[in-house]
Write a protein that binds this DNA or RNA. Structure first.
Length: 461
RNA sequence: GGCGUCGUACCCAAGUGGUCUAAGGGAUCGGUUUGCAAAACCGCUAUUCGUCGGUUCGAAUCCGACCGACGCCUCCA
């Protein structure tokens, strides 16, 4: 079942129907993190957007080969390693593992490949040699620059040549030229790689060009990134691949908008507030993930803790729905099922340039309608109705991934005893004791709800 | 200076020419239910979409001006 998917292509500035180069497999590249520090919530807005894109493609029966790079060569890493007198790879491996850990725990699927820049240095060197031998690049003092005038390709992908500010004291011939290889400097100390042009390191744009074209080829379907990478990174990344291949490098450029701070002070203390790690102390990862999908990926989100609370409440509402009707979460469940109207609306919303807010609206409409229709018969739901609800819940979760599958917290004996005491008291109409016990349970983090089928305890969030 | 985006209820957020007297979530207040709660359900909360004009049979949606917020123009998810 391959439906029409529309993506907003940054190149054309409008929505376009998605048609992959090869219908059997979609090639997708996403720019990953520079591992010099712990990733923050804004980084993960973009990474959850990558995951969303892949999941929506897969929902439409596309198989996706995805590559996400890890930039472990960078000025910031070098200066941090040298100023802290720590081994270079200690820094990168530390923050890489934090990144991968959070990636997984936010329920992002692993891409086909995570690729480190440092593992492709020789490929980058030979790529630069190719550019040099075609006169698309030139060497100055051990650095190599892309020759944007000589490469004979359209440079103005996202920002035109004229718009680029003049750079004084530059080794470059033209203002739109950019570094492919950066020569070693004193401050770099012991951190360098050998090359035909001397000690140095590959430049950022080249890292992505080489990783993308090596693992996916010279023509890829989708290239994702944060909007801030549009220029210069994506323009330069694209232009050097195209100079050699003479083919269009990326057909669909997808850029996600920024997550803004409430007060746009870029102070370190505020920056800390936005780390996923610190948010985890107060909020579940599921609510963080859902929060990142409550607004469309191309609109700005101004961060506010209240929004996370609202996401948490949305999840509670869905989980209560699941619980009330005794539905089962099973990620495979919705497959091979004939989708009904609401589900088709849901999929269509996602296929319309990943419109997650609209899809959420469709889903909650379904929950409300279902509640209205079946509330009185919650205990003995008809099989067809149960199947319908389970199908949609699982379809929803296959993309949003914010519901816990099979994560039931076994009740401790203490809780069980308290519940029994309360039931006893209620049977004896000893309301005072019953309420006291309910307060104790609440203090222990459990909310009691009395249902026709007996008391239900829910872990406080 | 150049290029571009956005402004929808108390808050968040879809909708971009007629099905819009504007989806959905949160919040508030009434009601049903309950021993009391909770959950769920019912109802209320934008005749209006930054402002002012224009185009049109018809505009939140198109055009213009203005006001306001913001992004990019070689650090950046």
């Amino acid at each position: 079942m391959k439906n029409n998917i529309e993506f907003y292509n940054s190149i054309s500035g409008r929505k376009e129907t998605f048609k992959p180069i090869n219908s059997s497999q979609v090639l997708l590249y996403g720019c990953g993190p520079t591992v010099y520090d712990a990733p923050h919530l804004g980084n993960f807005r973009t990474f959850v957007f990558y995951d969303l894109t892949i999941r929506v493609l897969e929902l439409n029966d596309f198989s996706v080969k995805s590559v996400i790079n890890i930039t472990d060569i960078d000025d910031k890493i070098i200066s941090r390693a040298n100023s802290e007198k720590v081994a270079y790879d200690k820094i990168t491996s530390k923050y890489e593992s934090i990144f991968i850990d959070q990636w997984k725990r936010l329920n992002n699927q692993l891409p086909t490949h995570f690729i480190r820049a440092t593992e492709n240095i020789s490929e980058m060197i030979s790529f630069i040699e190719d550019l040099l031998s075609n006169n698309f690049a030139y060497v100055v003092n051990g650095s190599v620059y892309f020759d944007s005038k000589n490469s004979k390709i359209d440079y103005d992908k996202f920002v035109s040549n004229e718009e680029i500010h003049k750079d004084q004291n530059s080794e470059k011939k033209f203002q739109s030229d950019f570094a492919l290889w950066k020569a070693w400097k004193k401050e770099d100390e012991e951190i360098f790689w050998d090359s035909p042009w001397g000690k140095g390191r590959p430049a950022w744009h080249t890292e992505c060009s080489v990783i993308a074209s090596n693992f996916l080829g010279n023509s890829i379907d989708i290239h994702c990134g944060g909007i801030d990478l549009k220029f210069p990174h994506h323009q330069n990344e694209s232009v050097q691949v195209e100079a050699l291949s003479k083919k269009i490098f990326t057909r669909y450029w997808l850029h996600s908008e920024h997550l803004l701070l409430e007060e746009d002070k870029m102070s370190k203390s505020l920056g800390n507030i936005l780390s996923v790690q610190s948010l985890e102390e107060e909020f579940s990862l599921e609510s963080i993930r859902l929060f990142l999908m409550t607004a469309h990926y191309r609109s700005k989100i101004t961060f506010n803790k209240n929004l996370l609370i609202e996401s948490q409440k949305m999840i509670s509402k869905i989980e209560r729905f699941i619980d009330n009707f005794n539905l089962r979460l099973d990620s495979k469940k919705f497959k091979n099922y004939d989708f009904v109207n609401e589900e088709i609306d849901f999929i269509n919303a996602l296929n319309d340039d990943l419109n997650t807010p609209k899809a959420l609206g469709v889903f909650f409409n379904f929950i409300n309608d279902f509640n209205k229709k079946n509330n009185s018969s919650a205990g003995n739901l008809k099989n067809a109705e149960r199947e319908k609800a389970e199908s949609f819940i699982n379809l929803f979760n296959s993309v949003f991934q914010c519901l816990s599958v099979g994560k039931s917290n076994p009740l401790s004996d203490n809780i069980k005893d308290l519940l029994q005491t309360r039931e006893q008291a209620r049977a004896e109409k000893n309301w005072e004791l019953a309420d006291q016990v309910r307060d104790s349970l609440s203090n222990l983090g459990w909310i009691v709800e009395d249902t026709p089928k007996g008391p239900k305890v829910i872990r406080k969030k």
